[in-house]
Structures are given as C-alpha cells and as structure tokens.
Design a protein around this nucleic acid. Structure first.
Lengths: 236, 236
DNA sequence: GGCGATTCTCAGCAAACTCTCAGGATCAGG
DNA sequence: CCTGATCCTGAGAGTTTGCTGAGAATCGCC
C-alpha cells in the first residue's frame, strides 16, 4: 500500500469522546487510515492515555459530561505535552470559544463532519507539527494537481475553482487514484457521517466535477464504471 | 493448486447467518475457495467464535433475529478486534440502514449475490487490511490482464470495456485458467444463487466475451469443450 | 436584508445492460 | 454422409443505471 492510501502510517492518535458510536466510527476509520489508535471515553482516562500511549495527535470532543475539552486541554498542556489537538465541536459553538481552543498547531472540526475532512485535518496538523516530516502536501494525477495547503486545484497549470464539497470529493478520488470507489463508499467518506440520502448526490457532484475538470480539456480523467463506481486515473 | 485458484488459501473466515441454507452454501463455497471456515447462527455464538477462532475476516448477515449485525459489530470492535467485516444486506434495505458500512476496511454485498462476487470482495478487504501481504491484485492469462482494483481489463495493452456480468464471468474463468468449467458451475458461481434460468445465458455471455476479447485479436483465449464447458487458456 | 454561491432533490432522457428466443452453424457418433 | 445434440449469435423486449438541467432551500458574505 502506498503512502497516500494510508496517510496515518506509523502515527499514534488518541480519540477522546463520550459517545460510543462516534468513538467506534473514528476508531475504525482511523485504524484503517494507518494510525495506531487508542480511545478514551472521559477526561481522566484521556489524561492517563496521553501519558501512557504518547499519541502524536489527539482528537478531542469538547462537549463531554464530566470534564470539558477546555479543562482536558489545560491539564494536558500543564503536564508539558505539546502534541497537536483536533477538537470536535458542535456547529453552534461560538467563534471566540473555538479561537480560545485552537492555539498553536491545533485545529477544529464541526460536527457532523465527513471522515475524509477529519483525516485531512489530522494529517495537516501532524505535518505542521513535525518539520522533519517534509511530505508533499499535493496530490497529482496526470496534469491535475491538488494542493491541500493552498486548498487549490490546477489542471495543465490553469486554476480550477471548486466548492468545498467538490474539493473533498476530488481529494478522496485522487487519494485513491486508479481504484474504483463505489457510490456508497464515497458517501461514507466524503459526506457527513449518518447522511441519509442516497447515491444520487454523488452522481450530481461527479457531474459538477466533470464540467470543471474534464469538459474544458482534451483527456478525461474521471471515469464511470457502470454498476461499480467512479475512479480518477492517469491517462498514461 | 495455485494461489490464484485458491484465493482464500490459509485465511480464516467466520460466517454469521441465521439461515441454515445460506450458511451451508457459504461454508461450502468458501471452503472450496481455500478458506478455513467457522460458522455461527447467532450473535452470541459469533462473539465467542471471534475470540476462539480468531478469523481474518467475518461475513456477517445484518438481518438476524436475536442480535442485528450492527450490534454484533459494535461488540466485536469494543473487544478490540479489528479484522474486516463483509456485511450481507437485503437489496431493499433503506440507504440509511446501510450508511456507514463501508468506512474502514469493511464492505458490503447485497442479497442475493453471486458467489464469485462475494469471494472477490472478501479477498479485496483482506488484501487492503493487511499491508504486509503484497499480492498482485491482477489476474493474467497470456496477454489478457484483469485488474480488480480498477475493475479494468486489457488485452495486449488495449483496454476492453466489459459490463458487470461480463467482468465477473471473465474473472471466474481467469481464476480457473486452464481448467474446464461446466455451464452449471459457472451459473452457480457467477449468477445470483437460486437463479432459475438455464445454461443458455452462459452461452450468450460467452459470445459477448468472445466478441470483445477474442475476435479483435489473433489468438483465441476462450475455448469451448463441447459437452463439457468453457475454459480460458494461456496459448503458450 | 439582499444576493450570489452552494447544497441537495427530482424527474426526464439516453444509454447500457440483462435476459429470452429462435434460426442457423457446428460437432460427434453411427 | 446423416442426424440429433449442442452451441453460436443476432434481434429485441424490458429493466436498470447514470447524466444533467431546473429549481427549492440554505448558507455566507457584504
């Protein structure tokens, strides 16, 4: 397996959340992304795990019954741990509350989020926190280039404007270039978890992407495998 | 027997289903595919078997009377087991019930399915869950190459477009290259189980395949053994 | 508040796909 | 060479799948 397919290869992540279902979802998908995973269901366990497991990054739900994310963060920092933290916040969390959280290399994601987006954020804070790990932040398929840091896509040198969803979808396809992805797999990764729509939305967005990425150029990069799914593929 | 002919060689699979007939069918055909097989008819037995038998992969029916597949999955994961799971779902299952099944290394197959398709999915999740097992994902017979990831077939470097059924049929033939397969055996593996049509459909699809794979080229790879069945064979 | 961008649903259309059938070709055995 | 069995293949009906434009609802930003 290549690096792009297992973006968390060799990295340790601690998941802190009181909801069993969400913990389970994150654990499964981050494991598969190549991370070594530990979980904690409350603040005290989290503090113990930070010391024992020595994670490279923490995913922390800020709304927990016994000890909120602010308190956990303060205690973690007070003990001298400096690893980045990705906070999970409710959509209605106020801006200044979030601003107070995300100092330094930290980041946050609002619930409900898409798995592809969360993994991308985790990988991003890891890259920023570790200057020794100079890893190309851009994906490339043929003459199509996606730069994650700049959040920019170009084809044949020409900048292409994408909406947030289009960008996440394209990144997921490019991370899996040369492999067919079913509509349900795309839904599960690119759309918010527990999304209850059907695959029609994926068809619509593939149509949007094609109009921007394939139609203005000679060689199509996006391919439909009827009855199976979609794929981006290097033409050579 | 070669690796390609026994795709499950040395791997352990646990089958969890409450329907005795389906359990029997799966047990038989996965054994034949080279898997070591254990079965369970309900959730509790399944949990015990996961611990005792230590399967590399689980095939799990999501609709069971005592404990549904999601509950079984949660309990399995809660105990720290990370092996991939292939879920069996009814075709009319609402989309939100299926949502989230394809995160991580898991996959799902809708009932009724074809055995060849199920085995292919099982092999695929196993390959992706185990990065140490660097195994070629493509089958090759002469200059004919079938790439399972890209769901793509080429002959002499030229891409050949196949429908889903044509693809499954060709893969089944190529997995058994050099061996004659009877029409009824092909029906049993490539078409949905309990298919009630006769072998005429196989003749039709062999004709489709020939038109795409043999007719445009010099050397025929698909051969008819009159009164016995069909075979694909390396010309050399 | 207003306006454009974005997200999502939906329905009509086009194309692909599956399967049946029947006439014709081919083969094996006598 | 005859004959029945087997297989091949083209035509076509019925179904499924995917594409796309239109429009409603929402979001974000001035």
């Amino acid at each position: 397996m290549t690096e792009a397919e297992r973006p968390g290869q060799g990295r340790r992540v601690l998941i802190v959340d009181d909801e069993p279902d969400l913990r389970e979802l994150l654990s499964t998908s981050l494991s598969f992304a190549g991370f070594e995973v530990a979980v904690a269901s409350n603040g005290n366990t989290a503090l113990a795990q930070v010391a024992d497991f020595a994670p490279d990054v923490v995913v922390l739900d800020v709304q927990m019954p016994d000890m909120d994310g602010f308190t956990v963060t303060r205690k973690v920092r007070a003990r001298g741990h400096t690893m980045p933290i990705v906070f999970l916040t409710a959509r209605d969390t106020t801006d200044d509350a979030v601003a107070g959280l995300t100092v330094g290399g930290d980041d946050y994601v609002t619930k409900p989020f898409s798995l592809a987006e969360l993994v991308a954020r985790i990988v991003a804070v890891l890259r920023r926190s570790d200057s020794t790990r100079v890893e190309s932040p851009s994906l490339q398929v043929g003459d199509l280039v996606l730069d994650d840091d700049a959040h920019e896509v170009t084809r044949a040198g020409k900048t292409i404007d994408l909406s947030p969803t289009e960008f996440t979808l394209l990144r997921f396809l490019m991370e899996n270039a040369g492999r067919v992805l079913s509509k349900s797999k795309i839904l599960d990764h690119v759309w918010e978890y527990q999304w209850d729509g059907d695959g029609a939305i994926v068809e619509t967005y593939m149509s949007y992407l094609r109009k921007k990425i394939d139609t203005p150029f000679d060689t199509p990069l996006l391919h439909t495998k009827r009855g199976v799914g979609y794929m981006v593929k290097d033409p050579s």
